Amino acid sequence: MTLYFASVLSGLEYVLSNEINNKVSDSEIIQINRGKVFFTIAESFTCLSTLRSADNLFQVIDQFQIGPHKKHLSQVSDRISQLDLDFIDHKDLYWVNASRKGKQTYSRFEVAKKAMEGIKKRYAEWNIGTSQNHQVEFRLDIEHHNVIFSLRLTNAMFRFRNQNRRFSRASLLPTVAHAMVWLSDPKWTDIFVDPCCGSGTILSERATYPANQIVGGDISDPVTKIAKNNLDDSMAEVNVWDAKKLPFATGYVDKIVTNLPFGRQISPDEDLELFNHHIMNEVCRVLNPNGRAVILSESVNQLFWEAKRLGLFCLKSYSLSLKGVNPTLFVFEKQGEHRRE
Rank of each mutant, 00 (worst) to 15 (best):
M1F: 04
Y4I: 07
S7E: 05
L9T: 13
E13K: 09
N22W: 02
E28T: 14
I29M: 07
G35F: 04
G35M: 05
K36G: 02
F39K: 02
A54M: 10
D55C: 12
N56W: 05
N56C: 03
I61H: 09
Q65H: 11
H72D: 15
S77N: 14
R79T: 13
R79E: 07
I80Q: 09
D89W: 01
K91C: 08
A98W: 01
K101W: 05
G102E: 06
Q104T: 13
Q104K: 11
F109T: 14
A112D: 02
A112K: 02
G118N: 06
G118A: 12
K121G: 01
R122S: 15
N127E: 14
R139Y: 01
I142R: 02
E143A: 05
H144Y: 12
H144D: 14
V147P: 03
I148D: 01
L151A: 03
T154P: 04
T154G: 02
N155K: 03
A156G: 10
R165H: 09
P174R: 13
P174K: 11
V176M: 08
H178C: 00
K187Q: 07
T189Q: 15
S199F: 03
I202N: 08
L203Q: 05
L203D: 04
E205R: 03
R206G: 04
N212H: 15
V215N: 10
V215Y: 11
G216K: 11
I219Q: 05
D233K: 15
S234P: 07
A236F: 10
V238N: 14
W241T: 06
W241E: 09
A243K: 12
L246H: 01
L246Q: 03
Y252V: 01
V253R: 08
V257S: 13
Q265R: 04
I266V: 15
E273D: 14
F275W: 13
N276T: 05
N276H: 15
H278C: 07
H278L: 13
N281L: 13
R285G: 03
R285F: 02
N290W: 01
L303H: 15
E306Q: 11
A307Y: 12
L310I: 00
C314H: 09
S321L: 10
S321G: 09
G324D: 09
G324W: 04
P327E: 01
L329D: 06
Q335L: 12
E341A: 11
